[in-house]
């Protein structure tokens, strides 16, 4: 039995009169990928903000890496990193400078070396010395995630990591996320795409109406539905598959 690195019990949060979270419970196993699935406005970002010490909950308990968010936010910040919904990068600085800045703020001994390593790992050596303001959306997302990896935090929170990305970049982000989990990092992500949760997550929780209405592995969740009917349907390629096939051919590395 693996250790639960995140334990959430009965978390409630209201904004003025609107009750966004009405008692949320879930657990995340160490080293796993956990997807919090929900539609827009379901409270996914609120949940992430509470776990990353940005927001205080009204009730309930949140334990991250054995620390209580209420009592030990500092210790928690040492072991987490957050990639928010919008690329939180300094656009006036270069990619390299952004990475170095985060490394310095994590008080690492060799910020320049850490930055270089991540630049290589993410294949960004060409763009690294350009200002981030000139990057494409996909590039920004990449540097954004790279910044979250500085200092190898134990848990990485990704708030809708692929929102607004083209299909190609989305696949790339998926690859990064899987790679993180293979290296033992716990990944907590939110998404509104079922496919994303299906592709990536070891465990999925569905947040709806302020509560977790279902959680478990993909298999567990599938069992909640009536058994599948067998039907023969001619499968047309989706536009996404067509796009990726064409683009993939062109840029085969």
């Amino acid at each position: 039995m693996k250790k639960n690195i995140i334990q959430i019990k009965g978390v409630k949060k209201s904004y003025k009169d609107v009750e966004v979270l009405k008692g949320v419970d879930f657990k995340v196993e160490k080293g796993s990928i956990f997807a919090l699935l929900g539609s827009n406005g379901a409270g996914k970002t609120t949940m992430i903000k509470i776990m990353t010490t940005l927001l205080k909950s009204d009730a309930g308990s949140v334990m991250i890496d054995d620390f209580d968010v209420e009592k030990n936010p500092r210790e928690i910040r040492d072991s987490i990193s957050l990639t928010g919904q919008f690329a939180a990068i300094d656009e006036v600085m270069t990619g390299r400078e952004n990475l170095q800045m985060i490394a310095k703020l994590r008080h690492l001994k060799n910020p320049n070396q850490v930055a270089d390593e991540l630049i290589n790992r993410f294949g960004m050596s060409e763009a690294a010395d350009r200002r981030v303001g000139t990057y494409s959306g996909g590039m920004k997302r990449r540097i954004d995630i790279a910044m979250s990896l500085v200092g190898n935090p134990k848990i990485i929170f990704l708030d809708e990591p692929t929102a607004g990305l083209d299909p190609e970049t989305r696949l790339e982000v998926w690859k990064i996320v899987k790679g993180l989990s293979d290296a033992g990092t716990t990944v907590f992500l939110t998404t509104q795409y079922l496919e994303e949760a299906e592709q990536l997550a070891d465990k999925i929780a569905i947040l709806h109406g302020g509560k977790i209405i279902a959680q478990g592995t993909l298999e567990d969740l599938k069992k909640l539905f009536p058994s599948a009917k067998v039907e023969y349907v001619k499968k047309q390629p989706t536009l996404e598959e067509v796009f990726l096939a064409i683009v993939g051919k062109k840029e085969d590395k």
């Binding site: 987490i80 957050l82 919008f86 939180a88």
Partner: peptide, 13 residues
């Protein structure tokens, strides 16, 4: 607006 405050605030600084 850019969210960089949130990034900083979730860090041990």
């Amino acid at each position: 607006k850019s969210g960089i405050f949130e990034r900083f605030h979730s860090m041990p600084i």
